[in-house]
Design a protein around this nucleic acid. Structure first.
Lengths: 231, 231, 231, 231
DNA sequence: GATGAATGAGTCTTCATTCAT
DNA sequence: TATGAATGAAGACTCATTCAT
């Protein structure tokens, strides 16, 4: 997984170089710490924008402010770079998202609203959302990436949503529904919109899509309607 | 710009295929007529599977049973082939879909059920659905394709859905809702599932997704619930 | 082994394109037949001269009068080209050498003289002798090549020499000697001189080596002396 | 241009290694002295094994236990390293060999036996013999190396052999022969065997070659036979 | 129209060499 | 002195495209 073997960052650091602490070898060492992150950043942008095959490693390097050769100091080849981009950018995303959703004891309807909002804020609206498009596009060439994405990203997020719904049902706040069918149904608008904003939307005249606020609000209303114990 | 081989739409003659007149040398002419369709077919499969850049024209040719050079007799270059694949496969799809949905005078709720079912049958479940993934993936490199897709495919389909909903509201069968926000919301699960089945799903252990029947049925129930005049 | 899959030459053709027989597709087809041979020829010269690693495929192509890409139409990669060079050039060499030595019923001493002379003429003095140097140099990187060389080239040739000697001993023309030890001993001067002429000699002032005639004659005299029944 | 690490020849101080004076910081200085030798040692092994072009300087450095940059402190570039490897390893070899052969006043036949034995022991059987293969292989790219090899290594050794033979002829221990033709003839088996053991032999099943003892003994017998005054 | 041999620009990848520390 | 990060020229290999047949 993630960056180079020599990284000193003990925990999952996506590539945002840990600030160098004390004395010791200075400028260069700092560069070395920062490099993987900068490269991942550049690669993310280009892979998402142009696709894997159409991205030239030289462009990635230039965007990261280094030479072609330097890239190979950190990633064995293009494929490894792709994997690192996906993994390194996704894992912290999930972590941070999961951290924000932790049960607050609030009513489940509020939890639901929070879930959708936070997902959009911390995932859908970020540049990392483009990875979904990337993974989807490259799944035919890198099945393991698709698997990783499904298992480490999609499923965990859906599990959070499912658990909120299930608690709501237990607490009689929600009516009994088919949770396994509902969860993907309710994630779809968010995920597709995130993908869209990294693909179709930028190619179309502005204001093609309805504002995200209205989008989210309407979605939430419908979800709650479907969960409502009345009717 | 030729129709797919299996297209039932007799209209929209492909630019290249000369209409065959009467008797004359049959078999060969038939081949010549069929060529563009076979090439498009082959290109569709490979583009969807591997992506545009990672697909070799030689493979497309081989799959269509012709030589590399022949391909250039029908399409000026790789990019033109891509455009033809997208356009030729999509247009008849929309046509045939639109034809099936024509207002039948039935209750709007039934029209809605029919709409989702038919969309899945004639679009989502077909191999042409992979084009959505393809267009999304290549939008960065071919914005006009994305625009074409949005305007000629997405919007028309959403317009059909919108019209059903609007009629239902007029007829007081449905409650008044924000149609512009609802339509993309309600298309999302179908579109995303279609994309998924051409990307992530084939890479994951079987039975990862819930059955499509249950998926569609639950979706329809929620849509109707949201449209219900009661509650 | 040997050239491309599409070669129509049924027997071991080293690369000297079989003359095109009758009608049919002309000029190009002839080229296609000839190409492997021309490429092998060019590669042989450069590999022997500069070594495998230091030879640029582009130079090989240019020397054969084709472009870089064409080379890859015939050989999958540089390593395959090396193997083809070695195999294709060596096998016919052995064959032709073996054909010339066939027992003539002459006195064994004459057979011996003939053997050394012919070996030098058909192997040592030809440009193919450089392959020995090449194989020796690359054995560390391509052990299978070394094995092939030993088993298919060295051993068969030594077997011919051994059989002559053995017959001479049986016929009491030669004294009884340790044949297995003698054969490599007696091949060495020829093989080493062949290697030398493709390596050291061209780098040294002329007339460094004694003339080949005197070399061979002296060698033969010593061999016969060692085999002589008198003394 | 430094002596090999194991060289027993105390003379010919390498250009770089400053002679260590008295007390002072010992361990480090010793390292510094040893460096060139360790580098040469590592380079020798890799050059002989893989060839010049296929050997990476980084591997040489690693094998010598230093960093890539350090290598450049001692040798200006890869080519200089090669020259140093050849020169530094060969010169002491010749010296030590020459020292062992010094005229002992023994019968010339014994001198001859001693010559061949010692050559094999101090040259043929050592890891330095691989240099012959290396020089042969790289002669096309480094003619001066080939020249150096011929003039400083091959010729001097042959001169020793020639002088023994000539003395034997003068003393009537040997018959009159063509010395200039005989000497290369008689060196060939030894040299070729040495080359072989660093190339072909390691790639073939064991016991392919006859034992060196038998090889040398047979060789000597034939040489003496050819020199014998009787017959 | 159909073919497939030929081309060469374009990319990935390697590695000798430099240089700030 | 020693290091190893950084560089970029060089070379293997691919593939869209052309064109003689």
């Amino acid at each position: 997984m993630s960056p180079p073997a020599t990284s000193k960052a003990p925990t999952r650091t996506p590539g945002h170089a840990p600030v160098h602490a004390g004395g010791g070898p200075r400028r260069w060492a700092r560069r070395k710490d920062a490099r993987p992150g900068e490269l991942l950043e550049a690669a993310l942008a280009l892979f998402v924008d142009r696709g894997f095959a159409a991205t030239r490693l030289e462009d990635v390097a230039r965007r990261a402010g280094v030479s072609k050769g330097t890239l190979y100091l950190y990633y064995a080849n293009k494929e490894e770079l792709l994997k690192a981009v996906v993994r390194a950018n996704l894992i912290p995303l999930i972590d941070s998202f999961a951290a924000e959703i932790q049960d607050s004891g609030a009513p489940c309807a509020d939890q639901l609203r929070l879930f959708f909002r936070k997902w959009w804020e911390t995932v859908g609206a970020t540049r990392y959302a483009g990875i979904a498009k990337l993974v989807v596009a490259e799944s035919g060439n890198f099945p393991e990436l698709a698997r990783f994405f499904q298992e480490e990203v999609i499923l965990p997020v859906m599990a959070v949503l499912a658990s909120i719904v299930r608690r709501g049902i237990e607490l009689r706040e929600f009516r009994e529904i088919d949770v396994d069918a509902s969860v993907p149904l309710w994630m779809s608008p968010l995920v597709l919109r995130a993908i869209w904003e990294h693909s179709i939307t930028p190619c179309c005249p502005p204001n093609f899509d309805i504002p995200i606020e209205r989008f989210l609000e309407t979605h939430l209303r419908y979800v709650l309607c479907s969960l409502s114990t009345e009717g």
